[in-house]
Amino acid sequence: MTEVTESIRGQGELDSTTFSLELDAAEMTAKSETLRWLVGKEVSLTTKGDVYGRKWDVGQFEEILSAVLKREYQKNLIYIALKEGSTSVREISERTGLQLGKISYLISDLEKTNQVIFKGHSEGIPVFESAS
């Protein structure tokens, strides 16, 4: 406990308002159906195998789980940034720190699930809005 306390003391105070976007996105990811579904399938996929009879290696499964969760987290960052009022890909990039190409790619995913709506163009710039 002394080591943990010293480590956290060294990192300084956590101002949760500074990281509100990241914490909200992480909370959405942890609550997501995707995470529940994947974790629920882990034991059967790694012990019995999938519908094709392929048994998954635990390491390989966890690698995929991490990649899926990273993608979910980034999508949630974009969704929250849009909810907070960012409208263009460039504005979202400034708010979230994600790369422009990555945002365009993930926004199309969010559009497919009706979480984000394309509102048209404003001065030649594509404008988006969160659906709910």
Partner: peptide
């Protein structure tokens, strides 16, 4: 311990979770 508990604790103002 659900990961959500950890996130909620950080949001509630705790500096670290063990």
């Amino acid at each position: 311990v659900d990961p959500l508990y950890i996130i909620k604790a950080l949001k509630a103002g705790w500096d670290g979770i063990l």
